[in-house]
Amino acid sequence: MSRYIPQVLGVGMLQMISVNNLKKSYGDFCAVNDISFAIQKGEILGFLGPNGAGKTSTINMMTGLSRATAGEIMIDGIDVKRETKKAQAIMGIVADESNLYNEMDGFENLCFCAALYGMPKSERESKAWQLLAQFRLKDAGKRPVKAYSKGMRRKLTIAAALMHAPQILFLDEPTSGIDVESSRQIREMIVELKHKGTTIFLSTHYIEEAERACDRIAFIAAGRIVASGSIPELMNSVSHGHTISLVTAKNAEAFVDELQSCFEASKVTIQSDHSLVMVSERRIALFPVMEFFHEKGIDIYEARELRPSLEDVFVKLTGIESSVLRKDKEMGKRQ
């Protein structure tokens, strides 16, 4: 069951990408199963899912590197399946792994990539230096790519995709294998591109990345989009109730039943000796609760509302352990 609800676009919003009932099978195995989504111009859509969810398969179909088994892909009004080359002219693609020419230097790589898009020599040379500077690779510009570190290669791959100033950027796990500082730089650059009007499709399995950079997120698991929407929409889509957590001076175990009857429809659990959690369908006002404890002669040191994280929402919707979204890459690499 797909929870995807077609986006109703507001006036003046331009739909840049629309994917309908897209499917990809490898033999009997269905890697992408009937997914649909739309991306507006200048929007960043995060495609968040664990290993093997079908992220790369989806990108490959959208960029024309592989053939869809079924479904429709429209990019800026161009049918990708019929006019692949025309659609590719406005795309920039960062593959999940380095696909640079190792025997050439960084500068040559950038120039060559731009030449494939028909960019004239003088233009591509100045753009290459500009991007090398932006990615702090200027000093390494004349060094062969095989002498680059993994992070440097990743950055150069992204720069190569930006050479021809694409209207749409596909990023397949752009920050995998990159240190925190460089990841931050890349995220900032992604947001900057968005402000310039670039439409971005970002596949990732880092929740934090999706949360920080994306306007909307689609959760993908086992080839299906389980949910999609803006972060607040996703938060609201799961009924998590309202939760408050209290830290008391004494163990409040004795008052649990009384508390539950006083505050209708709430469920109280003692978490550790001195802390308890109340969950209710309706919002719980803090003051009456504090007053309750005051009457019992128990001081309260801390009271706060607990909000679900995007991670909780993901776990709830997909039934997949959230740890999968953080460590799997490193584990996958080691295998």
Binding site: L65, K85, N102, L116
Partner: peptide
């Protein structure tokens, strides 16, 4: 060689016939 280093993908992804 270019296919195994994946750089060949660039040619397939480029807007050239």
């Amino acid at each position: 060689f270019e296919r195994s280093s994946r750089s060949f993908e660039r040619l397939l992804l480029a807007p050239i016939s």
